[in-house]
Amino acid sequence: MRYEILGSLRVTDDLAVAPVSAPKMQVLLATLLIRANHVVSRDELSNEIWGSAPPRRATASLHVHVSQLRKILTRPGRPGTPIATTAPGYILRLNPGELDLHRFQCLLRDGRRAARSGHHERAVDLLGAALSLHRGTVLDGVAGGPVVGGCARWAEEAHIECAGLFVTSGIALGRYQEMAGVLCSLLARHPLHEAFYQQLMLCMSRSGRRAEALRIYRCARDAIRQELGLEPSRELRELQRMILLADDTPRDMRLVG
């Protein structure tokens, strides 16, 4: 089985996609996946599914939902179910590589190490593979509680870090045009992330597109002023000044990914 939460919630095998469409079932599965290979208590699951207003027979209802989920995750010709009852709740046991979030974490860890060691070709390969696992907003449409919401927020920050490192290594390899396209897509999703504006300005400047680099600075300044009531960071203003004063930004300029 393969489980995917880096986008809408999906369960697949070699034959088909297992449907998990009921909202409470989605929250239950998402919570068990986030805490995979660890016991999740009935109280915590109840809080994720119903919040502060559980039904009178919450424990019985939870048992029904778990039973239904077990049926969905039990595949023909495969003994048993990945969900086990273990006091004080339930555990979903996964094998290595079955959850896309775990694969993303491994690729990001190795890619981060490669980037920091200056092995940029390897970093681009690893981080690009990690980014390809994201299909959109994490757990899109799953309205859970603190476990689901916390995971979604963490995964979004990890995606930003991964993208920044990917672009930094791409710039180090001189792939300015390719990285400019990546950054435009990232800024459409994160229009207030200044590091992406810095990287895009650098790509444009090093590609000989100095006027476009300065236009990007103006777009960044306007967005930050309008949304936050602030001025661009010192690093962004300094990069603008260097582009204005020189035909090329110094090659040893360092940007945070």
Results as ranks from 00 to 15, higher is better:
residue 141 G to W: 09
residue 141 G to Q: 07
residue 141 G to V: 05
residue 141 G to F: 08
residue 141 G to H: 09
residue 142 V to H: 02
residue 142 V to F: 03
residue 144 G to C: 07
residue 144 G to Q: 09
residue 144 G to K: 08
residue 146 P to A: 15
residue 146 P to N: 12
residue 146 P to H: 13
residue 147 V to W: 07
residue 147 V to N: 09
residue 148 V to N: 11
residue 150 G to M: 11
residue 151 C to F: 15
residue 151 C to Q: 13
residue 151 C to Y: 14
residue 151 C to D: 08
residue 152 A to L: 10
residue 153 R to I: 11
residue 153 R to H: 11
residue 154 W to V: 14
residue 155 A to I: 12
residue 156 E to P: 06
residue 157 E to N: 13
residue 158 A to C: 10
residue 158 A to G: 08
residue 158 A to F: 08
residue 158 A to T: 06
residue 158 A to P: 09
residue 159 H to W: 13
residue 159 H to Y: 15
residue 159 H to Q: 14
residue 159 H to N: 11
residue 161 E to C: 08
residue 162 C to Y: 02
residue 162 C to P: 05
residue 162 C to Q: 07
residue 162 C to D: 04
residue 163 A to N: 06
residue 163 A to K: 04
residue 163 A to P: 04
residue 164 G to N: 08
residue 164 G to M: 03
residue 164 G to P: 08
residue 165 L to M: 12
residue 165 L to R: 05
residue 165 L to P: 03
residue 166 F to G: 02
residue 166 F to M: 04
residue 166 F to C: 07
residue 166 F to H: 12
residue 166 F to E: 00
residue 166 F to K: 01
residue 167 V to K: 00
residue 167 V to D: 01
residue 167 V to P: 01
residue 168 T to D: 07
residue 169 S to A: 14
residue 170 G to C: 00
residue 170 G to Q: 00
residue 170 G to E: 00
residue 170 G to P: 00
residue 171 I to A: 03
residue 171 I to F: 03
residue 173 L to F: 04
residue 173 L to M: 11
residue 174 G to E: 04
residue 174 G to M: 01
residue 175 R to Y: 02
residue 176 Y to L: 05
residue 176 Y to E: 05
residue 177 Q to R: 12
residue 177 Q to T: 13
residue 177 Q to C: 05
residue 178 E to T: 08
residue 178 E to N: 01
residue 178 E to R: 02
residue 178 E to S: 05
residue 179 M to Y: 00
